Simulated scan of single mutants.
Amino acid sequence: MKQNTNEDKRDDAVRGTYTPDQDRTLTEAVLDAIEKCKGSDLLRTDFALYEDINPDAINNLFRHDANPRTRVAFMTDDVRVELWGDGGVEIRVENRTIE
């Protein structure tokens, strides 16, 4: 039986949503999506999100108002992360393609 997690995988991208009433921070939701995209436990690697973006800044930016005009995109390790407001926060993580 498939469990509904509000995340699905399409076109090699992992999508998720976050709302402030969850029992985790936005940064934790982003890390979960990155783990799913990479297919590995980030605790077992040398991955450090704070080397590429300030996690507190992400949490604060989307804390009170998930405005649809608010959009953040950044690269970390070998993935591209996009966040945007849409009644909550939409999360999209995809492997970067080397061109």
Rank of each mutant, 00 (worst) to 15 (best):
M1R: 02
K2E: 10
K2F: 14
Q3E: 15
Q3K: 08
N4G: 06
N4T: 12
T5R: 00
N6R: 14
E7H: 12
E7V: 06
D8K: 14
K9N: 11
K9C: 06
K9D: 10
D11H: 14
D12P: 09
D12L: 03
A13R: 01
V14F: 04
R15W: 05
R15P: 04
R15D: 01
R15T: 15
G16D: 00
G16L: 09
Y18D: 02
T19L: 00
P20C: 10
P20A: 14
D21W: 05
D21L: 05
Q22Y: 13
Q22V: 06
R24D: 09
R24Q: 10
T25C: 02
T25Q: 05
T25M: 04
L26M: 08
E28T: 03
E28G: 03
A29F: 01
A29H: 07
A29V: 04
V30Y: 04
D32A: 03
A33R: 00
A33D: 02
E35F: 03
K36A: 07
K36Q: 08
C37V: 00
S40C: 12
D41K: 09
L43R: 07
L43V: 04
R44C: 15
R44A: 13
T45P: 10
A48W: 15
Y50Q: 11
Y50L: 07
E51D: 13
D52P: 01
I53C: 13
I53D: 07
N54P: 11
P55F: 07
P55V: 02
D56P: 05
L61S: 06
F62K: 08
F62G: 04
F62I: 02
R63H: 07
R63S: 08
H64I: 10
H64N: 13
H64K: 14
A66W: 03
T70G: 11
T70F: 00
R71S: 02
V72P: 11
A73E: 05
A73R: 12
F74D: 01
F74W: 07
M75T: 15
T76M: 15
T76A: 12
T76R: 10
D77G: 13
D78F: 13
V79R: 09
V79I: 02
R80Y: 09
V81G: 03
G87W: 10
G88Q: 06
V89E: 00
V89M: 01
E90P: 11
I91L: 00
R92M: 08
E94A: 13
E94T: 14
N95K: 15
R96Q: 14
R96L: 11
R96W: 05
T97A: 05
I98T: 08
I98D: 11
E99D: 11
